[in-house]
Every structure is written in C-alpha cells, then in structure tokens.
C-alpha cells in the first residue's frame, strides 16, 4: 500500500510548486494517472520510489517512508521510464538483467540463469546476447521491464511506458504490465489503457483534481482539456 500524507514538492531554486500537498492511499492493484504534459504526473510517480523526495509531508510504501528507507523502498518499487534507452546500461540484454541481479543473486552462473529466466518470461530469450542498441523500441521496453521484474518488486511504477511505442508494441507491453501479479501505478496519455485500471487519478497544475472510477475520470479529463467552465475540483 502506498500512502501520501500531505506530500508536496516545491522546486528548491524557483520556489514553484510542482505538486501541491496531496493526501492519498493507493491500495488498488492497477491505478492509472492521467493529465496534461507538465501537470505533475511524473513527479507524483517519482515520489513513490524516492526518486523525488517530498519537500513537505511524507510518502510511505508498505509502512516505510521514502525519506528514511529509500533503499528498501526502491527494492520494493520497480520503475519503468518512458524512454527505455536511458534505463539500459550494459551492452547486451542478458548482461543488463544480470546487473539488476548483482546485489541479490550471488555467483555469475546463478545470475546468468536468473537473467535468462527473466528474459524468457518476456519472450526475449533469443535476444539475450544481442546488443541493446540493436533492439527495437518495443524490445528495449520489454528488456527494461525484465530488468525491473528480475528483482521481484511488489509494486511497479510505469511512467508513460508505451508513449514511444508503435500500436503493436503498445498493446503488447500494456497487456503484459496489466497481467503482472504486482501493484501497477501507470502514468499514461493512453486513455484506453487508463480505462482498464481500477482507479484513476487526474492531475492538473500539480493537483489531484479527480480521483475515482476510470470512466468518470477520463470524462472529467476530457472536459478539463476541452474547457468546460462548469467543471470544478472533484476530489
């Protein structure tokens, strides 16, 4: 369970509020987060695994605050970025997954076996020794996911994981993420994918302006974007 208690983020230099004090409890298995560019979605997502620290309030994951227990929280929370290229560090696919396992699996052979299992589970077994730079965008995103899943996180935060993918890979990666037996927090511009969640948050100007059923949330978001003046905050 993820708990935000008056968690706010203010830019240290400019004093601009990126996320206003937010109080939320996220316990559903699949939660989607939607909102315009620059609305604060990614900041909210990054708060969950301590990539961004709240300047006020706290964020707690499974009873551990990100500020005090950052390392433990990051072990529980896997993070998937929009651009997988930045997430892949080693030259080949198997070596990259092995890097994730460096702290948890002792012995090179055991690490290689675990890495191959992780790749096989996502259908990338035949790509194990292929250079990361030679993989397609969809395969890179799958590889980034394999690196995350290899360490068995309890929660996955995916920050627009399908934005750079074509229709085929978007469907494949999206379906795969939803099928995982972990809690999924999905930041997305794909409203179809957002609709498949159990709960949806709408963020606007650093504020959670809607929190509820995906259908209503998407409708609220459309109204917000296309300027219905009668719409007000509905949290």
């Amino acid at each position: 369970m993820i708990v935000f208690e008056d968690a706010a983020v203010v830019a240290p230099d400019s004093g601009v509020t990126i996320l206003e004090p937010t109080t939320l409890t996220l316990s559903e298995r699949h939660i989607s987060v939607i909102g315009a560019n620059g609305s604060g979605k990614s900041t909210l997502a990054r708060l969950i695994n301590g990539l961004v620290m709240p300047t006020e309030g706290t964020v707690t994951v499974e009873g551990k605050t990100t500020r005090k227990h950052g390392r433990e929280v990051r072990r529980m929370v896997g993070f998937l970025f929009t651009d997988p290229s930045a997430q892949l560090i080693m030259p080949t696919a198997a070596e990259d997954v092995m890097l994730s396992l460096r702290r948890t699996v002792k012995g090179k052979d055991a690490r290689m076996r675990a890495a191959l299992e992780a790749l096989e589970s996502l259908g990338l077994a035949d790509r194990a020794d292929v250079a990361v730079s030679a993989l397609s965008g969809g395969q890179r995103q799958l590889l980034a996911l394999a690196g995350v899943l290899a360490v068995a996180p309890k929660i996955i935060v995916a920050d627009e994981p399908t934005t750079l993918l074509d229709l085929k890979w978007r469907g494949h990666v999206g379906a795969l993420l939803r099928s995982l037996p972990v809690q999924l927090i999905e930041v997305t511009h794909d409203l179809d994918s957002a609709m498949r969640a159990e709960r949806t948050l709408v963020i606007d100007s650093g504020k959670v302006v809607f929190d509820g059923a995906p259908g209503d949330a998407v409708q609220f978001y459309r109204d917000l974007i296309f300027g219905r003046p009668e719409q007000t905050q509905r949290v």
Partner: peptide, 9 residues
C-alpha cells in the same frame, strides 16, 4: 542517473 537510482544500482 535517475534510472541507476531507480534500479537501486
């Protein structure tokens, strides 16, 4: 850098 941090490396 963010990815390294996120992966616990």
């Amino acid at each position: 850098g963010q990815a390294l941090h996120a992966r616990g490396i």
